[in-house]
Amino acid sequence: MEQIAKLKELIASAEIDAEKFNKGNSAAGTRLRNTMQQLKATAQEVRNTVTEKKNAAK
C-alpha cells in the first residue's frame, strides 16, 4: 500500500517539526498541526481501503 509509505513520510516530517516547535519555533507548530491532519486523513483512507477489500472477499 502506498498509503503506508505516505504515513511514514508524514510521521518523519512531523517529528522534525515537533523538535523545532519544542525549541520555540511557532511556525513549526502550525506545520505540525497540518501534518497531523494529513496523517488522520491518510489513516482514514487506509481504513476505508482495508474495509473495502475485506467486504469484497465475502
Rank of each mutant, 00 (worst) to 15 (best):
M1I: 01
M1W: 13
M1S: 13
E2K: 08
E2S: 11
Q3V: 03
Q3E: 06
I4E: 11
I4P: 00
A5E: 13
L7W: 03
L7S: 01
L7M: 11
K8I: 08
K8C: 03
K8G: 03
E9P: 00
E9N: 12
E9F: 01
L10K: 04
L10S: 03
I11K: 12
I11A: 13
I11M: 12
A12K: 15
A12H: 07
A12T: 12
S13H: 11
A14F: 06
E15R: 15
E15W: 06
I16Q: 10
I16Y: 06
I16T: 15
D17C: 01
A18W: 01
E19H: 04
E19G: 00
E19N: 10
K20V: 00
N22P: 04
K23T: 12
K23W: 00
G24S: 05
G24C: 00
N25I: 02
S26P: 08
A27M: 13
A28G: 09
A28W: 03
G29P: 06
G29A: 06
G29D: 05
T30W: 03
T30H: 13
R31C: 02
L32W: 00
L32T: 02
L32K: 07
L32E: 02
L32A: 01
R33Y: 04
N34W: 09
N34Y: 03
N34H: 10
N34F: 07
T35G: 09
T35D: 05
Q37M: 12
Q37G: 11
Q38D: 13
L39W: 01
L39C: 08
L39S: 04
K40Q: 11
A41M: 12
T42E: 15
T42K: 06
T42C: 05
T42G: 03
A43D: 08
A43I: 05
A43V: 08
A43T: 09
Q44P: 01
E45V: 07
V46Y: 04
V46T: 01
N48Y: 07
T49K: 12
T49M: 10
V50N: 07
V50C: 14
T51F: 07
T51R: 12
T51K: 11
E52G: 01
E52L: 08
E52K: 15
K53P: 00
K54Y: 15
N55S: 15
N55A: 13
A56W: 07
A57G: 04
K58Y: 11
K58F: 12
